[in-house]
Amino acid sequence: MQTEDPARRSAIMRAVKSRDTSPERAVRALLRGFAPYYRLHRKDVPGNPDIAYVGRKLAIFVHGCFWHGHDCARGARAPKANADYWRAKIARNRARDAAHAERLAALGWRALVVWECELKDRAALERKLRAFVA
């Protein structure tokens, strides 16, 4: 197995986007068909949701399975290099996500998390999104 240069790995990780990712764009494309008029990355809403219907108090978060510690195959994959750092980082992300969900609920918002792996079954994801925004 080839070991990777830490500087190269660091550059790769810095290049990972936090908004307008492929999964987020795919979810927005589905929503445009039946529930347009959403707002993106509202900083005035707790958690800065990827997609928000402000008047209806609906927030949609599109989470990467690795970054947010999903229990699917991709989310369960743990890096071998700097493993302690990554375990702590993902645990902090999960705690932050839970705090945002509690804050939104306290303000009367409903939140939905769409996991990156759910994009594999677009029909099921569309049904989930339709039920949420209905």
Rank of each mutant, 00 (worst) to 15 (best):
I51S: 01
I51R: 00
I51H: 02
I51N: 01
A52H: 03
A52K: 00
A52P: 00
A52F: 02
A52L: 05
Y53D: 09
V54G: 06
V54Y: 01
G55A: 13
G55E: 07
G55D: 11
R56C: 06
R56Q: 11
R56G: 09
K57D: 04
K57I: 02
L58W: 02
L58K: 09
L58E: 06
A59H: 01
A59E: 01
A59G: 07
I60T: 03
I60Q: 04
I60Y: 05
I60M: 04
F61V: 02
F61P: 00
V62W: 04
V62G: 02
V62A: 03
H63C: 00
H63N: 13
H63I: 03
H63V: 02
G64I: 07
G64M: 12
G64C: 05
G64K: 05
C65G: 02
C65W: 06
C65P: 03
C65E: 03
F66T: 02
F66C: 03
F66H: 06
F66P: 00
F66G: 01
F66W: 05
F66N: 04
W67K: 07
W67S: 08
H68Y: 12
H68R: 08
H68M: 08
H68A: 10
G69F: 04
G69E: 05
G69I: 04
G69L: 04
H70Q: 13
H70P: 02
H70S: 14
H70D: 03
H70E: 07
H70W: 06
D71E: 15
D71P: 02
D71V: 11
C72P: 08
C72A: 08
C72D: 11
A73S: 15
A73L: 14
R74F: 06
R74M: 14
R74W: 11
R74V: 13
R74D: 10
R74C: 04
G75R: 11
G75Y: 12
G75S: 06
G75C: 06
G75T: 08
A76P: 00
A76K: 15
R77P: 00
R77Y: 12
R77C: 07
R77G: 05
R77M: 13
A78K: 15
A78W: 15
A78G: 10
P79Q: 12
P79I: 09
P79W: 08
K80L: 14
K80E: 11
K80Q: 14
K80D: 12
A81K: 10
N82V: 08
N82A: 14
N82R: 13
A83E: 12
A83K: 13
A83Q: 13
A83F: 09
D84F: 05
D84Q: 14
D84P: 02
D84G: 14
D84L: 15
Y85C: 11
Y85V: 07
W86G: 05
R87L: 14
R87A: 15
R87G: 12
R87I: 10
R87P: 06
A88M: 11
A88L: 11
A88E: 15
A88V: 07
A88W: 10
A88I: 05
A88R: 14
